[in-house]
């Protein structure tokens, strides 16, 4: 189908206007992060200015940014790792040796995602309090692993299903144990799928802001909680807020860009590919 040059010009224009409008708050945040505190609130706003990195230096010096970043990394990676370790065997079993219960098991797993977190806030908070898990990384890792488990199992299941069964069967004929079959055949062959599953889980853990806000305060607080501390009136420093936010968002934004296509599968439980 050929389209007229005028139509292409209009779509190009419209497509870019929309993209710029949606991206503008992020662009403005990055721009503001390189201003001085005074420059950040000057009216009319500075668009061309001499960029400085004082806001970044102050965020680290005053509030120990790296501590919260490290928490975010440990909790996200920990939660993802636990979820993957639990899911790989489960998804393998259901994809390659399905029984009459497989379908209902998968559906039930998914239905656990329908439980609103706020509905179980009280018991989880009290359980964490009695077991001294409040403001601990381990507690949050456990919650994140369970929270993402259904999505991770589903996504791995759909990736495993696409792999030809014969390869694994050939391996079994050659006397490979289940362990060898999974570790030496399945995992290397479905590496891209596993990587994008892990990436989605990382993104979801990194951006999770219900449990982190309610269950952590300082020593285990990830970046979501740290950024929330800027909401107090005395914390209202636009440049520092922007610098901290830019650092918090940048890595996940890049992950998201890399894996956008695979994300659709994970986010819709394979319903839209």
């Amino acid at each position: 189908m050929r389209s007229s040059p005028l139509k292409t010009l209009l779509t190009t224009l419209l497509g870019w206007i929309v993209a710029f409008a949606l991206f503008f708050p992020i662009f403005w945040m990055v721009l503001t992060s390189f201003k001085t505190e005074l420059g950040a609130i000057s009216t009319p706003p500075e668009v061309f200015f001499r960029p400085v990195i004082t806001a970044y230096q102050e965020v680290q010096a005053r509030s120990n940014y790296l501590h919260f970043a490290l928490n975010s990394i440990l909790i996200s990676v920990g939660g993802t790792l636990v979820a993957m370790l639990l899911s790989i065997p489960a998804a393998y079993a259901m994809a390659f040796h399905p029984s009459h219960r497989t379908r209902s098991t998968l559906l039930w797993m998914l239905s656990t995602k329908m439980l609103p977190p706020v509905g179980v806030l009280v018991p989880i908070y009290l359980l964490f309090r009695t077991s001294h898990l409040l403001d601990s990384r381990i507690g949050l890792i456990g919650i994140y692993a369970l929270m993402n488990l259904p999505i991770v199992v589903w996504m791995l299941f759909t990736f495993f299903r696409e792999m030809p069964k014969d390869i694994l069967e050939a391996g079994r004929m050659d006397g490979a144990t289940t362990w060898n079959e999974v570790v030496h055949l399945l995992m290397p062959l479905t590496l891209p799928g596993m990587a994008s599953t892990a990436l989605l889980s990382l993104i979801l853990c990194w951006n999770e802001a219900f449990w982190s806000l309610n269950l952590t305060s300082s020593s285990a607080a990830p970046l979501t909680t740290f950024i929330a501390s800027f909401s107090s009136p005395e914390g209202l420093f636009f440049a520092k807020l922007s610098a901290a936010s830019t650092l918090a968002v940048a890595p996940i934004l890049v992950f998201g860009w890399i894996s956008q296509r695979q994300l659709v599968r994970g986010l819709t439980f394979g319903a839209v590919k």
């Binding site: 190009t12 497509g15 993209a19 991206f23 945040m29 990194w206 909401s231």
Partner: peptide, 28 residues
Amino acid sequence: QPFLGKGIARVLAISPFFVMPTVSALIW
């Protein structure tokens, strides 16, 4: 639709989804 620089425009447009909720809220 086909248009110039579609890949980049699309990446920019979907970016807000990857911003953590506390950041989006405070930026806005």
